[in-house]
Nucleic acid binder design. Structure first.
Lengths: 144, 144
DNA sequence: TAGCAACAGTTGTTATAGCAACTATTTTGC
DNA sequence: GCAAAATAGTTGCTATAACAACTGTTGCTA
């Protein structure tokens, strides 16, 4: 591993790519008046897959801070897309799940997300995808 | 390009990796009481390299919104690390440059940044780095 | 079983991200 | 020349990120 390449700004490149993707997604959401943010979408997607989870599980699944989850969920509840349900045995726990409107939102937005995911990859191969996954997983594992 | 791999969450992985890196850097900065954030560091690094730039140039160089630049610079000015200087010809323009304290901060923090950059890459090769760069650049170019 | 640690979640605060609207200049087009 | 457009930067607002401190609940253990 040479010095020059270590000094190269991969942090910057990750950041720039992620911002480009996030802005693209958000502009498409706004253009089609989906009335959600990218991160709100990520929680909706996760709640659709897991049906019934706690704040903690959602935080782990999405790589988000639990305080951030708490605040995004608050917004989704206000929008009527998510409902909270207290655990009858452990009164500290609150289960989260999509409302019927939340499920509708998922089904409404899902196709355009699928198309947008294709856009970033249109000139890349499955091998590229596996390489990216491998490298990012390795960096993730290397960092304390 | 198969459907399954398109639906895989590369967005999520980028986000998670970047957060891991950012949190690691921030914790190291805090532990050694450098009294800066990761993004403040990125601006300092950029100002050290370019000596004298405008808000606009800095925004382009760092892939940050110009309003974000404006606010981070405000914090750096308050800390005495950056100074603003009006252009004598075009009174709309403000040049930014590091103060002597800003240069000291750069030289103080630079070595640990260099070490931290190594940490993420310790089990990866230069070929991996080139692959990551190529793939991220391609995604960046693919996204409108 | 009393006390305390651990756990689940919320709230306060500061920072970054981005859009819209704004001021103040400079440039352009006629 | 002068009005309109473009440019440089700031401010207001909402959202996400993360830490610290907080409430309330449950589990552990001396």
């Amino acid at each position: 591993m040479t010095d020059t390449f270590v000094s190269n700004p991969s942090f910057f490149k990750l950041d720039a790519t992620l911002k480009k993707l996030r802005n693209y997604w958000q502009k498409e959401f706004d253009a089609k008046q989906k009335d959600i943010t990218v991160d709100q979408w990520l929680l909706i997607e996760n709640l659709y897959k897991h049906k019934k989870t706690t704040h903690n599980e959602l935080a782990r699944n999405t790589s988000k801070d639990i305080t951030t989850i708490s605040r995004i969920i608050e917004l989704l509840v206000k929008k009527g897309l998510v409902k909270r349900e207290a655990d009858s045995l452990d009164r500290r726990k609150v289960y989260l799940q999509l409302t019927p409107e939340g499920v509708d939102k998922y089904k409404d937005v899902k196709p355009m997300v699928h198309e947008m995911r294709k856009v970033g990859w249109k000139t890349l191969s499955e091998k590229d995808y596996n390489e990216l996954t491998r490298i990012l997983d390795t960096i993730y594992a290397n960092v304390p």
